[in-house]
Amino acid sequence: MSVHSEIKKITTETLRKMKFDKEKITMLTAYDFTTAKMVDAGGTDAILVGDSAANVMAGFETTLPITLDQMIYHTQCVVRGVNRALVVADLPFGTYQSNSEKALDSAVRMMKEGGAHAVKIEGGAEIEDSIRKIVNAGIPVMGHLGLTPQSIYQFGTYKVRAKEDAEAEKLIKDAKLLEELGCFALVLEKIPADLAKKVTESISIPTIGIGAGADCDGQVLVYHDMVGMNKDFTPKFLRRYLDLYTEITGAVAQYVKDVKEVNFPNDKESY
């Protein structure tokens, strides 16, 4: 049994303590009440209401189109289903990059209306003012470095980041800056495992990796990918724990067959 399993609520302080105690942190995404309830019951430490909702819930190609109002709605749904996990919500593209006042307004709305326990934002030195303002208002901030999907048009690719020395050095510098600014944790996405290890060892706040090797303080996956709902998404870092796409389409096909052949409902299923 985990030493934290008796804790009613996971907090940002719990995650810091887990890093100190060398206990790995687990995080999965959720975007609705029913999923959040299951993910929470399964024992994950944190739930990310990711802007990946733009992809898996709304069918967009990138995370850019999702709005703050839509993210608040998804967060409200998730929070209602959670008893234990820390709920972190992404601030979507365009809600914090332009100026720190707008960033604070966005974060306040996410906490007040969405009910999030913390917000996550992408980037390093470029968004220093925004992070400082949000943290100073007493709102917990999780950083995000490496592959930052909101900057996809700038990068032009979803390939591994920070393979070159200059980009790797900037990432380490940014990680230290995010710690100084008061971020409570940091997502590292699609960077070389040895760099992620270096970053993890050089800062005192937890790192949560996705495609960043086993030496991060924790791991995060998109729920829909982890349970195999997305048949066509097969990145190297993904481990599928179920094949729900096959299970669900099979169940639907059986239901269709039973209705067509008047096998459903039967006498026991009728009033």
Rank of each mutant, 00 (worst) to 15 (best):
K9M: 07
N230Q: 13
A103Y: 05
A253W: 01
I172C: 02
T14Y: 06
G115N: 05
V252C: 03
C77Y: 00
D215W: 14
G228R: 01
M111P: 04
A251Q: 02
G138C: 11
F60T: 00
N263P: 07
F237Y: 14
G228Q: 00
E113N: 14
S202M: 01
M142K: 04
A196H: 04
P192V: 13
V199Q: 14
C77H: 03
T95K: 02
K19I: 03
P265V: 02
L181Q: 15
L188S: 08
T14S: 03
A212V: 04
A89L: 00
T14I: 13
G209S: 10
E164R: 13
A36M: 07
E61I: 11
M229D: 12
D165H: 05
N136L: 08
E180Q: 11
E126L: 15
T14W: 11
A193T: 12
K260V: 04
I152V: 11
V119Q: 13
S151Y: 10
R161L: 05
R132W: 13
E179D: 10
D129M: 09
K17G: 05
K22M: 14
I203H: 07
V3Q: 11
K37L: 03
T63A: 13
P192T: 15
K176R: 10
N99V: 05
I25Q: 08
Y245A: 11
G211P: 04
V252R: 06
E6W: 12
R16C: 12
M142F: 00
P206M: 04
K173Y: 10
R239F: 11
V108T: 02
Y241S: 15
C183S: 09
A103R: 14
T44E: 00
I47H: 00
A125Y: 11
G211W: 15
L145Q: 07
L86T: 02
G218R: 04
V222D: 08
K260E: 14
K8F: 14
S270Q: 12
M57Y: 12
G124S: 04
G123L: 08
L91T: 05
E126M: 14
F264E: 04
I210F: 00
D90T: 06
N263T: 12
F184Q: 02
R80S: 09
G50F: 05
F264P: 03
R109S: 10
T26L: 05
L171I: 01
K257D: 12
F184L: 01
F33P: 11
T11I: 07
R84Y: 03
C183A: 05
E169I: 15
I205T: 01
A137I: 10
G94F: 08
H144Q: 03
E247I: 03
I248G: 04
V79F: 02
A214N: 15
I152R: 07
A36K: 05
F237V: 12
A253S: 09
D32Q: 08
T62W: 08
E201D: 00
E6Y: 06
T34H: 10
V227Y: 07
T63F: 01
R161G: 10
I248W: 08
A162C: 08
V141M: 15
D32A: 02
L64A: 15
